[in-house]
């Protein structure tokens, strides 16, 4: 004990000398008191340690305490071995949950894929109908633009002209056997055959009739449409059935058209450009758009197509 205290005092002096604090008595006392912890009474070995000391060897301990040698490899001199064992435990725990995590990832991926496909696919019927309607627009007259938009928009200005030609046709004259159903098609030129069988009705009858209310269409287009369709329908029927004698009947129909409309454009047999000027001036700025359509209509069998109207000049 004395040798231990002397060696401890020597050690404390060396430490104070290294730190340059050999004159500090308080620090020396503190270090000496700290060193007294090495002289704590030793407890008697108990349990597994007592069995190990009594057995005198690890082989005997294995018989007495089988669980102790299993823990010994982790207690080597190197301090990092417990960390290695801890890492092994963590890795084993991760491997245990790996199948579950993989399964969850697979299920989530499949769900996202199926959901993405379902969200990206659109109903085919609606898009096909729209596609066909868009493709048929160029076959109609220039005035068919608003008409083509009419059925899609389902506006009131579209259905009004369809009723007017029917009424006019029944009054104006005997309908042709093949043309009886034609006025019914006037309101829906897009559904007609673009090859030209009913093209005259499409060109001059349906287009101006519905173009006027469509262009003026502020809600009262239905009122203005029937007069426009009246003359157009009568003229259209005559012109459509008599392509071989266009001039006379066209000239007869034009005054009626002009009277019914009250516009100067249809009263002339002038070219479409002049009629467009006259018709555009009369109704005012709001009626400028339908005027060219009305001007194109007097040309029998040619309607509002720009190329055919210019050919009639």
């Amino acid at each position: 004990m004395t040798s231990a205290s002397e060696s401890r005092a020597t050690l404390v002096e060396d430490m104070l000398l290294d730190a340059g604090c050999q004159q500090d008595t308080d620090l020396r006392d503190a270090l000496l008191s700290l060193g007294t912890l090495s002289a704590l009474p030793t407890p008697a070995p108990t349990g597994a340690l007592a069995a190990l000391i009594a057995a005198g060897g690890p082989a005997a301990v294995e018989r007495h305490v089988p669980s102790v040698p299993a823990e010994e490899p982790a207690d080597g001199p190197a301090g990092g071995e417990p960390d290695v064992q801890r890492d092994d435990e963590l890795a084993r725990r991760r491997r245990r949950h790996r199948p579950t995590a993989l399964g969850l990832v697979l299920v989530a991926g499949m769900g996202l894929g199926v959901g993405g496909v379902a969200a990206s696919s659109t109903p085919s019927g609606i898009s096909a109908t729209e596609h066909v309607l868009e493709e048929w627009v160029p076959w109609s007259t220039p005035a068919a633009g608003p008409l083509a938009a009419g059925p899609l928009a389902a506006g009131p200005g579209y259905r009004a002209p369809t009723a007017a030609p029917d009424a006019e046709l029944s009054v104006a004259g005997p309908p042709a056997p093949d043309g009886a159903a034609n006025p019914a098609h006037l309101g829906s030129p897009l559904l007609q055959d673009p090859a030209g069988a009913v093209q005259p009705e499409n060109e001059h009858a349906g287009m101006p009739a519905c173009a006027a209310p469509e262009d003026h269409g502020d809600g009262n287009g239905a009122e203005e449409c029937p007069p426009a369709a009246f003359g157009a329908g009568s003229q259209g029927n005559g012109a459509g059935r008599s392509k071989e004698k266009p001039e006379a009947e066209g000239a007869q129909a034009e005054p009626r058209d002009a009277e019914s409309k009250g516009g100067p454009a249809a009263s002339r047999t002038a070219p479409a450009g002049e009629a467009a000027d006259g018709g555009g001036k009369a109704p005012g700025p709001a009626a400028k758009a339908p005027a060219p359509d009305q001007a194109g209509s007097p040309a029998p069998g040619q309607g509002g197509r720009p190329k055919q109207a210019s050919a009639s000049k």
């Binding site: 912890l37 090495s38 002289a39 704590l40 009474p41 030793t42 407890p43 070995p45 340690l49 190990l52 000391i53 009594a54 057995a55 005198g56 060897g57």
Partner: peptide, 19 residues
């Protein structure tokens, strides 16, 4: 073995316990 174990234990047990 028993004597060696006892000697090592008596020599270093108090220091290890203090540490």
């Amino acid at each position: 073995g028993t004597a060696a174990f006892s000697l090592v234990y008596k020599t270093y047990a108090s220091r290890v316990l203090g540490y």
